[in-house]
Amino acid sequence: MKRILYVLALGIFGIATTEFGVIGILPQIATAFNITTDKAGWLLSAFALIIAVSGPFVTLFFSSWNRKQSMILVLAVFTGGNIIAALSTSFPMLLIARMLPAFMHPVYWSNGLTMAANSVPEAESPKAVSIVFGGFTIASVLGVPLATWMADLFSWQASFLLCAVVNGISFLGLLLFLPDMPGVKTSFGTQLQVLRKPALWVSLGLACLIVAAMYASYGYMAVYLREVTRMNGAQISMMLLVFGITGVAGNWLAGKLLSRSRLYTTMGFIGLLLLTHVLLYFAGIYMVPMIVMVCLWGFIHTGGFLISNINVTTMAPEAPELVNSIFTSCGNLAVTIGATVGGVTIAHAGVHQIMWTSVVLLLLSLVVVCAANYKRLARMV
């Protein structure tokens, strides 16, 4: 059974590398097509925007498909999209090549996470989901830096070809090792009934706050390390790698703790990440303490996606694919919100103050958790 989980994680690795690998090659693309860097940034923001807007609708459309077939189709589209991107001769062509796979992104995420959760007993589902989420974590550790390195070593086209190869390998893995799994025969209307659950919307709001808090600071991590801690490029690259490596361990631990208590794990995560950001502010100007704090930051930070996903999906187990796709849309929207709020903070207060933006959002998250579970918490007092 674990082999299936690792195959699913490999697909997540390829998709995440495709989505975020472009971050490190935006300057090269801007130069190649004689455009501004912010215009080149549409290769990332348009990708996320399409996921946020179309995710639930595309997932509903594919919900009756055989899950193996739909996921193989997704990886085929990602492989082809990256090949077209590498062959692009104009920026509009490159943008279209990036946008087409984005429509299919939620189909793999929702089906992959649902299959992981359903492949083991209910009590073990957080651990199984954490293995699949590990593909996302490893993509941030290896996939994104490797895509950037390929572009530096050869050209920006090589970065897209690398993504094509990774997705092609994932395609073959699913084709050979993933068992057939019929789609959901439930009607669209029945699945949409879950949207009437207030608890689901509370969990989505909480997930949005948590992920926004994470990316309000993490999205500007390199800037913070350069301007506040005064690290050079090589040191920043090493810190990003360390952040990702410790995140793999943190993701694994979050999966184990969620199997024991979802509420305690969520509250503990928010509290520890809040404290971490306070310490990051005070350690920011010191090299050695900051190195230690980056290790702690990565270890705690990465579990946020898994914790948020489990909180959302447990609210509507009768429509897991739809709920996972809504979570994916919510997560991409939250990343955009966090990055925007963080940017506003930097523009008006400076880079050093960015940590307090995350602190405020995490405090709001803690208020939501306590308000949503006040009866249970009151009984424990």
Rank of each mutant, 00 (worst) to 15 (best):
residue 72 I to Q: 00
residue 352 H to A: 13
residue 55 G to N: 01
residue 321 E to G: 00
residue 190 T to R: 14
residue 302 T to E: 04
residue 55 G to D: 05
residue 47 F to K: 04
residue 27 P to R: 07
residue 293 M to C: 11
residue 327 F to V: 02
residue 222 A to T: 11
residue 212 A to M: 05
residue 357 T to D: 07
residue 102 A to Y: 05
residue 173 G to D: 07
residue 43 L to E: 05
residue 260 R to F: 11
residue 57 F to M: 15
residue 82 N to M: 07
residue 356 W to S: 12
residue 252 W to N: 09
residue 32 A to Y: 00
residue 380 M to H: 13
residue 98 R to H: 07
residue 97 A to W: 05
residue 365 S to T: 04
residue 2 K to V: 13
residue 227 E to C: 10
residue 113 L to M: 15
residue 202 V to E: 05
residue 40 A to T: 11
residue 1 M to Q: 14
residue 11 G to I: 01
residue 47 F to L: 09
residue 275 L to D: 07
residue 255 G to F: 00
residue 248 V to G: 07
residue 293 M to K: 08
residue 143 G to E: 02
residue 34 N to I: 10
residue 281 Y to L: 10
residue 147 A to Q: 01
residue 211 V to G: 02
residue 335 V to M: 13
residue 334 A to T: 02
residue 29 I to F: 04
residue 254 A to P: 03
residue 379 R to S: 14
residue 300 I to E: 00
residue 197 K to I: 10
residue 258 L to G: 03
residue 100 L to C: 10
residue 175 L to Q: 14
residue 371 A to S: 11
residue 63 S to M: 14
residue 8 L to W: 08
residue 139 A to W: 01
residue 311 N to E: 12
residue 351 V to A: 05
residue 39 K to Y: 13
residue 307 I to P: 03
residue 90 S to G: 11
residue 102 A to F: 09
residue 60 L to F: 10
residue 49 L to P: 00
residue 157 Q to W: 02
residue 368 V to K: 04
residue 185 K to W: 08
residue 169 I to E: 06
